[in-house]
């Protein structure tokens, strides 16, 4: 399944939830936010939200700034 994660093309081997994709990128659960195709995905629905081919996923966290 091909999709875009943080602006980069990515191929996933099989069905993947938002929660599974997040856990591949960080050990943190808090301090992370996800948008799929421009819509915010609440943390409480990460496990249930399956990713589809072609999805554009943004996974964000805190960096220095302000």
């Amino acid at each position: 399944m091909d999709l875009t994660v943080n602006g980069e093309h990515r191929t996933l081997s099989g069905p993947t939830s938002v929660a599974e994709l997040v856990s591949e990128l960080t050990h943190r659960q808090t301090g992370v936010a996800v948008a799929v195709n421009g819509e915010v995905v609440p943390r409480s629905t990460w496990a249930a939200r399956a990713l589809d081919p072609g999805d554009s996923v943004e996974i964000l966290t805190a960096v220095q700034g302000g």
Partner: peptide, 27 residues
Amino acid sequence: TVALRRIDPAAPGTLLDVLEKAGVRIL
């Protein structure tokens, strides 16, 4: 304050760990 940006899996530690340890509120 912090900014919100794409996560970098290679980043050493996280800013949030520092802020949580310091016990400050995040803006």
